[in-house]
Design a protein around this nucleic acid. Structure first.
Lengths: 379, 379
DNA sequence: TTGCATTGGGAAAATGTTTACTCCCGGAAC
DNA sequence: GTTCCGGGAGTAAACATTTTCCCAATGCAA
């Protein structure tokens, strides 16, 4: 056996009549596995394994031979076998509410990038807000031995997650998480961005600012509304409950909310929305009603999804970076896997000013007039 | 030299706590594996395996005992071990151009559903039109032993795929594929839907119909343009090359194209677009210029992405069902895996009429007038 | 009752790695 | 010169399944 010639040469005792059972490689010399590499590099499979895993005790000369053999054979290790023996699947799960909501693809993209960079593969599941889909997602994650799961659904169905919790799979949530070992939470600082937004509007001169919130059963929607009210207070603007409308985080909800606002006797000069889809709906409804943005009403969205910048006018929005969320989520899971767990990760938000916000109607009429005159006079 | 970032990372962290005991299996009776089930059901592990895999030669009585034991222990088989020994990873790859383009999430959703239904997990990669990302995606698929890969990028980088082709991994493409064993293609019948669209416009009375195409280096964009010209011929409308504008499948491209069209001496009465993003851009640009849709210009999009229905006005579009594409792709791959390969799968397209199409400007003025008078007279 | 075929189930090989052990050898210390 | 130590590399035991092969048991016919 060429395979064992090296050992004989090195003087290793072939003595043990030992089970010869495992020398299958003689019959299939073309099988592309670690043995093939070992044979070509004239080392043992253990050395190949150590080389691949960058274990520093390998003689550099052998290392070189091994890498050359690997390249020549275009070999790469069998993932399933590694996973089996190491007990680590090197897969992370990502569960989202609905993949067709533009917020999530951007999150997925970020998650994929960070995970792959760290050598993990990702398993995606979308629940579409259905409990049984959620159940199936969790089962898939468990079956595939996901090492950790990011539950980014903005509406946690706790009992369903027990299967994962019971297996001590690290979990990471947004906003809110059970306080259990192995679980982390990404705390979004809604207040910072929303305060910036309110200050921006206040600085422009707005005093009547409406807020179209998300469904109040969602914790994240509650937090956004609370942050808005707090920010109003900080700017010395009293809270007017008639300007707080509950929407549903969809464009249709935004259109309906805009109609409700327009039915009030005097329209607010600015509308802040709990997410961008709502803002887009409001935008549509206003323009359908002949109102111009930002000349008649200013609008601010939340999330800063890609589409926000593509609206007419481009939407001023409060950015919650999907990239930040994704990398924090991966960090959180890695933290648990590597024994340095952290309970909380902060996610910041910040205002991105575009063209849907301006001076309130009327107040700057003289300025605009002056500007026009100035422009005219240069001709 | 090949780099295994994964392992470098593993190397430092592998001194984990969990894996100290490595001796006889007798020392860990609580290990939840096939042996535990066998023990509880008083059968051998082989019988358990056969039961799980629905091999019919097992005595129904034993089958029952085994399933009961499985349920009682809440056991499920280790995926990595199954994959290792059976050589089947039960994973399919899905490579898309960019996950943030609204077309793709809907495709992914469909793919996920169909794949999971058939017991497959999916690995997602997005190339963002970058060759090295594509390369990495392919490498991931190969490393994880994807059993088949759907390449839904609408712009195939053939040479990069050789790694997959060389390993005889079944592949499925859209529109165009190398004619090699193991490869299938989803042939989209662009003509059917586009013909419906043109007929719809012609029936409304339109004769000057513009077409904003996609980048002509893309085969799918070429096909759409060709189908449009053919459909014009079928409706007896001569092709006017000045009304054929090349866009780039983005909203910005649509806005630019609309400007080009408005610069011509007389505006077409209808504009058909090579995809919905273009149509949305055109829509925006027209409304920005004070033209009303469909009163001044009718617009038809292509793809019928979710967003199309949410525009103001809701966009008439030609639907190419993502669900159909997804299930055809999975069928194609399964066909190869199960020995009944099929080279081609047909994907149909059809017109979905919404509110962005109407009578051409002027032609129906008397009707509208009559309608208004009629409405007035009822008061 | 015996012989044979058939069938169902168990033992063990096989899958490709990682890694705990072991062994060899060179050098240093006594 | 012997002993001890340690670096470096090889052997083989896990890992949790599937699958092949074989044996025992059963039934049927002679």
């Amino acid at each position: 056996m060429l395979e064992y010639a090296v050992n004989a040469f090195l003087g290793t005792s072939m003595a043990g009549p030992a089970r010869r059972t495992r020398r299958r490689s003689a019959s299939k010399p073309d099988r592309m596995d670690i043995h093939a590499v070992a044979r070509l590099a004239h080392v043992s499979i253990a050395t190949v394994s150590r080389t691949i895993n960058h274990i520093p005790t390998v003689n550099p000369k052998l290392t070189k031979r091994v890498w050359e053999a690997i390249r020549e054979l275009n070999y790469f290790p069998n993932t399933q076998a590694r996973a089996l023996v190491s007990g680590r699947s090197r897969m992370l799960g990502l569960i989202v509410s609905e993949i067709t909501n533009p917020f999530f693809p951007e999150l997925i993209q970020g998650f994929e990038d960070v995970a792959v960079e760290n050598g993990y593969e990702i398993l995606i599941g979308s629940t579409n807000y259905e409990a049984d889909r959620m159940q199936r997602c969790i089962r898939r994650m468990v079956e595939r031995n996901a090492e950790g799961v990011a539950v980014m659904t903005f509406g946690i169905e706790q009992p369903l997650l027990d299967q994962l919790a019971d297996r001590n799979v690290p979990l990471v949530f947004v906003d809110l998480a059970p306080n259990r070992p192995g679980m982390s939470v990404l705390k979004v600082d809604y207040h910072n961005g929303i305060r910036q937004g309110v200050q921006h509007l206040a600085a422009l001169g707005h005093r009547r600012i409406a807020f179209v919130s998300g469904p109040q059963r969602l914790h994240s929607a509650q937090s956004r509304l609370a942050a808005f009210k707090k920010a109003l207070g900080e700017c010395g603007i009293p809270v007017d409950e008639t300007l707080m409308i509950e929407g549903d985080h969809t464009m249709e909800g935004g259109m309906a909310s805009a109609q409700k606002l327009m039915a009030t006797k005097d329209l607010p000069t600015a509308i802040m929305c709990s997410n961008d889809m709502l803002a887009i709906g409001v935008l549509h409804q206003l323009s359908r009603s002949g109102l111009r943005v930002p000349d008649d009403v200013s609008i601010i969205g939340f999330d800063d999804i890609h589409m926000a910048a593509m609206m007419i006018p481009p939407l001023t929005s409060i950015q919650m970076s999907r990239t930040d969320i994704a990398s924090a989520a991966v960090s959180a899971l890695r933290g648990h896997l590597e024994g340095s767990p952290k309970r909380e990760y902060k996610i910041d938000t910040r205002l991105v000013v575009r063209e849907s916000t301006g001076f309130p109607r009327g107040t700057m009429a003289h300025l605009r007039g002056n500007k026009e005159k100035a422009a005219a006079s240069t001709e």
